[in-house]
Nucleic acid binder design. Sequence first.
DNA 1: ACACTTTTTTAGAATCATTATAAACTACAA
DNA 2: TTGTAGTTTATAATGATTCTAAAAAAGTGT
Lengths: 132, 132
Amino acid sequence: MKYTEKLRNSGLRPTKQRLQICEVLFNTDKTFHFTINELEQKIKKQTNNKISLATVYNTVHAFEKKGYLKQIPINSSETYFDTNVTDHHHFYDLKEEKLIDLENSDVGPINILKKINGKKIKSVEVLVKLED
Amino acid sequence: MKYTEKLRNSGLRPTKQRLQICEVLFNTDKTFHFTINELEQKIKKQTNNKISLATVYNTVHAFEKKGYLKQIPINSSETYFDTNVTDHHHFYDLKEEKLIDLENSDVGPINILKKINGKKIKSVEVLVKLED
DNA sequence: ACACTTTTTTAGAATCATTATAAACTACAA
DNA sequence: TTGTAGTTTATAATGATTCTAAAAAAGTGT
């Protein structure tokens, strides 16, 4: 099965529900941003099948831990995830509360000069807030 | 009074509680990060006076809106604020769940090349996640 | 100082995203 | 198969934040 490996890598068995979540998340050329609730709605529409919120939370978190999804650091009541796990950044339109991708080439290289003893950099994320 | 102007600018009258919040937030050379709950505890310790959570939320939000405090975009169950409102960035130590300031000079200049029609950049924030 | 209006504070209730629970269900290996 | 360990689900619990309404304080005019 197409997504079995991704699931196994994340420590999850390939169940019907999880494969459906994979279809919605990964069976597309375009990457996208989502909240858990948006994802649940999308699944319901695309598969005519309701998957319980708990399952969606569990699966998304397992993928996030493994690096198949990224959390987008932003102050919002809901947590935003991104299926684009390459190194890239975001605009956040404050008025419309919408995220827009910033390609890596749209932001000059970022050089972190400070070092912290015994720690290594896991990620560098830039959030550019937009107003009118 | 020392903080009256700051409060008036934020659309708030200088009451006893708000002045106490100001003391804790601004009467120090060092800037610091805090959550609402941490701030409430700090107030109780420093002033021997309990201020209700609702008042702390209101005041902090008014200051944030006016730019006397900054929200730090980070995925955490609690919202983090910063009394350092200058343009600067953060390390986030994932294991210890601790924020560390990154001086602006520790990060090379950041050049946002993409433009969005009719929108202007309000802020550019870099979050560097650290792991062991 | 007093009466009167407006703003503020407060404790507790309401809300909402997320996490935990426990019973029914399913995958998978022996 | 059959057993067991993992999974799904609805629902309850949790916890941060926001709302509410009544009491307290501040501001205003006399």
